[in-house]
Nucleic acid binder design. Structure first.
Lengths: 145, 145
DNA sequence: TCGGGCACGCAAAAACGTTGCGTCAGCGGG
DNA sequence: CCCGCTGACGCAACGTTTTTGCGTGCCCGA
């Protein structure tokens, strides 16, 4: 992972907002030729600084109107519960993000569903009937600020 | 917002993982010509189903090695605090996401900083010395599962 | 002072995105 | 029953963008 210079950082800032910009436009904005921009982006992709280029979808449009944050504590004295829990989390497509955290909780899980009932079903399977889970708390999301 | 058919959904699934795929390749995968794919994507962009196409960066590579989840309660009896708080949150570039939630807390804020001290500075300004904030809790992120 | 490595710009070539046109299927009204 | 309308499609021509090879200049270490 080589060091990033100022031009790299400006390019990253630009493509992190809009990855569909032509190289010529990026070049104009940072003062570089299209081919120089291209070589930098290729290098940044290869070195893993740019992980992916993805389309951001409107959750509502694809029938995922509800977002919920769940805070989870595992039963503390069994380490193999950790692997079991993360495995289940990873296998669940409704899970958008899962943070392993310090503090009062062990995990914070962001879950996207069509409606509250969809969340209830997932929470039942993932938390309520899960022997690895000691306690959990549901924080339905009103809005993303 | 028109209805999505099966081809739309398959295209969305593909571009939500990799938005840099050529139209020809997408067409091959769903059984459509490049121009038909293009027209569908244009429509999906115009109708807001596709919000943006962005590059996903490695936080570590851009000097944002630490992620923290903060749970926040505002002082409950003053509604103008809500606007003040969301305004401050929006103005803070280190805030990756902010959920307005129901349940035991009012907000869940995901914050990205270089290190713990960076978080401390932001938390001090945003939460500790903020009259709108009644109490808050810090959950440093070990890892993203 | 002299090479070697590296990033650059330029230009040609290949790939890709875009658009106009003709076709066809589905549908509602005459 | 048939006609015309609408909407989506494929094809092909066109314009733009990406890609690649090459020559130049700069910086650094010998």
């Amino acid at each position: 992972m080589p060091e990033l210079d100022d031009l790299d950082r400006r390019l990253l800032e630009l493509v992190s907002v809009d990855a569909s910009r032509p190289l010529r436009e990026l070049g104009d904005l940072v003062g570089l030729s299209p081919s120089a921009v291209q070589r930098r982006l290729t290098r940044l992709r290869a070195s893993g600084v740019i992980r992916a280029e993805i389309a951001v979808l409107d959750p509502r449009a694809i029938g995922q109107a509800m977002t919920t944050l769940a805070l989870v504590c595992l039963v503390s004295d069994e380490s193999h519960h950790f692997a079991a829990f993360t495995g289940q989390i990873r296998a669940e497509p409704a899970v958008v993000t899962c943070y392993h955290v310090a503090g009062q909780w062990d995990f914070a899980v962001v879950i996207r569903t069509a409606d509250f009932d969809g969340y209830r079903r997932i929470a039942e399977r993932l938390f309520l009937t899960n022997p690895a889970v000691q306690r959990y708390e549901t924080l339905p999301v009103y809005a993303t600020v």
